[in-house]
Design a protein around this nucleic acid. Structure first.
Length: 311
DNA sequence: ATGCCTGAAGGGTTCAGA
């Protein structure tokens, strides 16, 4: 149980089993504007404590105007880092949202830097919401941009401490088992050796692929093309990952793909990935924050002023 | 059909996505 000392603003941690245990999700929503009818009920149903969004496709002011009422009601703070038309990432949290950083220092652009990463500390974990460039065609300019972007991300994550989660659409299938038919992807992006090597360089910092580790050898996809009944036939790819540093990964109680969110009317072409973290060991926790059940009316619904990473 | 859907911006179409 967790106790709230009325009016004092202090959480009675002596009564709290809550030690940073939390549900973390990542979801490429393919336009948050179009996805509101799916996203808001999903938040209420799954009650994730931290949500990383990608392809919000919305400028920050519009994001706040669109979602503030909903997120306030649900008790989320948020940090949005978007553009008018493409890309766009965000983090929603009801376990704290500190030290928000949008973009990457010295991050590459195409040609200008794009809104593809935002980071914040939530429940004691440094969380990155990432939308890795697509790459388009192997060896194209965009492909090399993708590789450079991943190298820059690795350098940023390397300096992020030992309580880290990198969540999002990495636009790489880590292994052949992560696509429905490896033969169908020969010569395509998402499966090439340099892309996988760039992903491995990121994981070499000590990050674990918690969904694959939980479901070795299983058919687990997170993306299905809208066309030709691909979802219905389960012809997809696993390109949305939750990567966690060892101390965080060790707390994994559950890790799964919420396929239900891909069904029905007006879905994204990606499904959310959901990871439940157990309580952290004593002495290995971040700041004690209000538990997931308590909306924080005083701070929710306020868009964080984001310090922009500079080149 | 090699973009079969979907979304955005903007304008009656094009680009992008994986």
């Amino acid at each position: 149980m967790v106790g709230w000392v009325g009016g004092s603003g202090v959480w009675l941690t002596s009564l709290a089993h809550y030690r940073g245990g939390m549900r973390v999700a990542t979801w490429n929503v393919n336009s948050v504007k179009q996805r509101v009818p799916r996203l808001v009920p999903w938040l209420a149903q799954r009650r994730p404590d931290v949500v990383c969004l990608q392809e919000t496709k919305l400028a920050d002011d519009a994001f706040a105007e669109l979602l503030s009422p909903h997120l306030d009601e649900l008790g989320y703070e948020f940090a949005a880092h978007g553009e008018g038309r493409w890309n766009g990432v965000a983090i929603l949290s009801r376990v704290g949202l500190a030290d928000v950083v949008a973009g990457m220092v010295d991050g590459p652009g195409f040609p200008e830097p794009e809104a593809r990463v935002v980071a914040a500390t939530c429940g004691g974990v440094r969380v990155f919401s990432v939308y890795v460039p697509n790459g388009r065609v192997p060896d194209s300019d965009h492909y090399h941009y993708k590789l450079a972007w991943l190298a820059a991300l690795r350098d940023v994550v390397r300096d992020a401490g030992d309580q880290v989660m990198v969540c999002g659409d990495v636009n790489i299938a880590p292994a052949d088992e992560d696509v429905f038919d490896p033969a169908a992807y020969v010569g395509q992006t998402h499966v090439t050796r340099p892309e996988r090597e760039a992903l491995n360089q990121l994981k070499a910092l000590g990050l674990k692929d918690v969904v694959r580790d939980r479901w070795p050898g299983h058919r687990v996809f997170t993306y299905w093309d809208y066309r030709a009944g691909m979802f219905h036939q389960d012809l997809g790819m696993r390109i949305d990952l939750v990567l966690a540093s060892e101390p965080v990964a060790a707390r994994t109680k559950a890790a799964w793909v919420d396929r239900h969110a891909r069904k029905g009317t007006g879905p994204s072409d990606h499904a959310p990935v959901i990871v439940d973290l157990d309580t952290a060991p004593d002495g290995d926790i971040g700041p004690v924050v209000p538990p997931p059940s308590a909306p924080r009316k005083t701070s929710s619904g306020q868009r964080k002023k984001l310090p922009q990473a500079k080149d």
